[in-house]
Design a protein around this nucleic acid. Structure first.
Lengths: 208, 208
DNA sequence: TCTAAAATGTTGCAAATGCAACATTGTTAT
DNA sequence: ATAACAATGTTGCATTTGCAACATTTTAGA
């Protein structure tokens, strides 16, 4: 993922942030910052520490479905979070906050600013690709078709019949929005029918 | 939706497009341009005419799930299209094509160019919001919860308990990625249980 | 190395859903 | 006005899925 301050010197970065009237916020490790972050028209950029998006399940268990690392940028308004999710600050996180309206209405023809917007444009484009892929998967109606679509996309990315899962099966099930045990069952069927082979996090596609 | 050429004069637009080595393509009414459009690293902007994203169902029927109008911008690589979908040109469509790499690597500190990137940034941000909303809905596991999440989002947008469906029920079912008749059944249950009222395309939320 | 916790695998069962088929209502062009 | 078509409503049924509960395997920490 691209860094929002690519091609911007440290000095220029400070100046820009000042011009954009940005401010930084700090949260201690394990603070729940869901309320503070969402539903504002702001851009956030993580300076240090990280954020976890945690999903709370009905039965009391919970699992991390996403992690926002250093230099990750996020738009708090597009950060769709409902009652089942929480955003947790990790390692005394530091976040730069920029008001979206301020960002858009800043009208100097400032080289640094323009570079910054361009970087954000590239980042959003990457994010949009990811979201589109996920939607393509989620719109499949059966677990099998969701899995196959996921495999197709991953294999295309790798240019290979091997897929290396970027997360564990619990998180894969969350990504596909299906029940983990039902997914496990379907994976077994796919194995039995000779479509795939699974070794740890490596899946081999045995068809076409 | 924002126009990608907002705050750019006609003259400057022409100059910019030339600098970016863009070209235009034309397709006659009802041409299937799926192959031509997808899987390229390009930005497209519709000048005249429009595009329809058509979904073909297994049983031979098909329906329009999205329409891209004049001034709509799209990134052909993020335009996720698989075998079930087609992109159809309507009304002898005219599209400006800009190579993405060219766009990103154009390094003049050109006021018009910077404005253009900023406009595209804003457009992507809007699109990202929409995609996030849809993902939030699609990750709900039951038809009922998908509907309720959709209602919640729409009602929040309107700031009202009234929802005016922006499409018909066939397309709503497609948007929610559920079977239309099953959706119809669930809507009936919601009506019977006193949660909602439906009059044509207006849905009234009777809870909270 | 051993142990506790986490992840993964398995299965029965009830509930939800897709699909098909058809009825009813609404829309549009002539 | 009415015919043809499109959209919406309805229902039975087989399939798929979520959920629960538990077994087995893997991982990580002491």
């Amino acid at each position: 993922m691209k860094n929002p301050f690519d091609n911007i010197s440290k000095k220029n970065k400070e100046k820009l942030l000042k011009n954009l009237k940005s401010h930084t916020v700090n949260y201690k490790n394990n603070t729940n910052i869901t309320e503070i972050i969402t539903d504002k028209n702001e851009i956030g950029i993580i300076v240090s520490g990280y954020l976890q998006i945690v999903k709370n399940n009905y039965n009391g268990s919970s699992n991390v479905i996403d992690t926002l690392q250093e230099n990750d940028a996020f738009s708090s308004s597009t950060f769709y979070i409902d009652d089942d999710y929480e955003i947790i600050a990790k390692e005394d996180v530091n976040i730069i906050i920029i008001d979206y309206t301020e960002l858009i209405n800043y009208n100097e023809n400032d080289k640094v600013y323009n570079q910054f917007i361009k970087n954000l444009f590239i980042i959003l484009n990457e994010k949009l690709t990811d979201k589109n892929e996920r939607i393509e998967i989620l719109t499949k109606k059966t677990i099998r078709n969701k899995l196959l679509e996921y495999f197709k996309i991953m294999s295309k990315k790798n240019g290979s019949k091997y897929i290396y899962l970027p997360f564990n099966f619990i998180n894969l099930a969350d990504y596909l929005a299906i029940d983990r045990s039902a997914m496990s069952r379907e994976l077994k069927f796919l194995k039995d029918e000779g479509f795939i082979e699974i070794k740890g996090k490596r899946i081999t596609l045995l068809y076409r």
